[in-house]
Amino acid sequence: MKQLVILSGKGGAGKTCLAAAFAHLAHDGPSAIKAVLADADVDAANLELVLRPERLEEHAFTGGSVAVIDPQLCQGCEICQQVCRFDAVRSPSIEARQLTYSIDPIACDGCAACVFQCPEQAIHMQPQIAGRWYHSQSRYGPLIHADLFPAQENSGKLVTLVKQNARLLAMDTGCQVVIVDGPPGIGCPVIAAASGAHLALVVAEPSAAGIHDLQRALQTTAHFRIPSIVVINKADIYPPGAAQLEATCADLGIEVIGCIPFDPAIETAMLNGEPVTQSQPDAPASLAIIAIWQTLASRLN
């Protein structure tokens, strides 16, 4: 069983559009592969909007814990505020009707330093339900996805949970590949999404920002020794940028396995909640994506 992760440094480069098309092609295309899909962009999970699956199971996700001060026990010594490095301890405030020290749960990092320093043992840690994860069935196969509640922490842990469940499901059902739609950036959620991947497909845009972000994304996959290949999306919108992306990849010894032209069919398909390869299989973007999928499928087999 192989894991393919779709990444891009920059957001909005077209990861979800590609993941949805790959889901369709893995199921129905000429190079069909039995696949489990995983949406690892838990901050802004969009694969569900295109695949419109049926939710089979729903589970709560417990993120980190935050500190809570018991106002009955607090003697107001201020030690908690002195030790907190995250500015999460609020002073007593008559306006806020807080007569003792209290914790700002959004600022709290969950380190518990205050818990162990409080001379009155007035502080304890309380686990937070930070999101939900789902096992769903789409028309193209199973999808594991999640919602992180807004303003929550620990998205990396939820990404890990989504991927582990996708991997276990793939093993149990004899699937050959897990297709992971990754989050943008290069930090914790991306590292969690890319961990254990056999291949990273990095989606790049031929723009000043896209070139910069591609370099950082490729440095990150190289840092974690994940073999990477690149596709260029909206390649014709700025041909000199596309040429520069190709040159960057050539310098790094990274293969560019395809270019997708700018195509309004993608936008139309997304508005209709369908993969572009399904709604308009003859559109220029679809033809490019089908060719890319055939290359990928041969690498994953």
Binding site: D43, I106, A107, A151, E153, S155, P183, P184, E267
Partner: peptide, 24 residues
């Protein structure tokens, strides 16, 4: 991008939040 801790850290203390979206 996103809605988790890096966004919260960036936005904290602002007087106003301007959200850029697209009609999709």
């Amino acid at each position: 991008p996103g809605t988790s801790c890096p966004v919260v850290e960036s936005v904290r203390g602002s007087d106003y939040l301007l959200l850029v979206t697209e009609p999709t």
